[in-house]
Design a binder for these strands. Sequence first.
DNA 1: TTATTTTTTTAGGTTTGTCTAAACTATTAT
DNA 2: ATAATAGTTTAGACAAACCTAAAAAAATAA
Lengths: 219, 219
Amino acid sequence: MNFSVAEENYIKAIYHLQQSDGNVTTNELAAELNTKAASVTDMLKKLKLKKLLNYEKYQGFRLSAEGRKVALNIVRKHRLWEYFLVEKLHFGWDEVHEVAEELEHISSKKLVDKLDAFLDYPKFDPHGDPIPDSTGKMAPQKQVNLIDLGVNETAEIVSVGSQSTELLELLTHKNLSIGTVLEIKKRFSFDHSIEIKIKGQSPFIISQQLAQALFVKKI
Amino acid sequence: MNFSVAEENYIKAIYHLQQSDGNVTTNELAAELNTKAASVTDMLKKLKLKKLLNYEKYQGFRLSAEGRKVALNIVRKHRLWEYFLVEKLHFGWDEVHEVAEELEHISSKKLVDKLDAFLDYPKFDPHGDPIPDSTGKMAPQKQVNLIDLGVNETAEIVSVGSQSTELLELLTHKNLSIGTVLEIKKRFSFDHSIEIKIKGQSPFIISQQLAQALFVKKI
DNA sequence: TTATTTTTTTAGGTTTGTCTAAACTATTAT
DNA sequence: ATAATAGTTTAGACAAACCTAAAAAAATAA
């Protein structure tokens, strides 16, 4: 099966949303893809017809096994190209995303596998996300420093970089602990501080030093 | 300016056709793109509106200066990717064309320039075609062995690999000489013989040995 | 030079992916 | 439990890129 760029973008977006959300909703997906709910409904019907999606109207949806396979292949391509761009072409890790969004739609299977070999089968992309192998398997999410997350990413705190009372005092004050789920809202390049948001609380800012002391697992 | 994949394919095809033909015609272009004349006319109007084309109806057409610039950029990307596929990913020179057809539409200028640097600014692609630099300049067509041409390519004989009477006798017999323009019709892998056609004559076959003795300039 | 053939263009239609506006379904709050 | 609000789907349109069939222009032949 071969899919259009639009179809692939929908599949990939659904894949990412269902990672955190379980069932995905029409509006959520429309927001993610900067399109309108009506357009999403149209595409959902098409993807359902192609058996990539489990979808009953008004009920939300998730990818089928087949859909997941397709999604993983797109993710594989995206992350391999990102790795290539950073490691071989010396792009900065923050400027590769857009280009990889285009490259991920190149269809040749042979190209991807040869690229994988050329890069020596990397297990993680430059952002710490695991790269699926050609059968779709991938390592569990790598633990990554909070400072390395991009805007809009969501992550769960899994460990801290020190056990000092000073750090623990600050964490308690900010209501942060192991297991806390947060979303990156903004990054300020002036002092590398980061605005984060915890569900149900208003956003607040943490310093570069604090961000570097927090290790997270992306969601 | 940014162009759709379809527009880019038209521009590239016109560029290649006008190399040999001077003015390009609607039917010619339709054949080249495996589409219908009516579709071509539609696109010609669009490209004229975007000032990429000098076109008056029923009169044939050529690219404008701007159109040529766009074409050269596509050619640059195509040939750089081909070089990458062969030199870095170890594709065979005969299996890269299709993949490069997709890769050439990736838009990032930065990507192309960084790829160019990574490849160490190659001057010729794996088929001997010159690669335009980022300003559109390129070396004159490299002299290439006839055995290395692909099917449907057109070329002019510019030199021969030996001055032996045996060779010259054969060339005379086959009506081949410096300046002869020929087109590759078929390649037979069994004995590496090649069917060629000279304008106004019926096609005939030349042996591997003869093909290797002839150097040509692509048109 | 007129008639025939070939080439090109126009007219009108299709598909894909998008949109707005309106209708429908589900959820939430009183 | 019902009314108001949220979310979702349908209906109808549009642009891009393609198509077929018919009309118009150009080239060629009688």
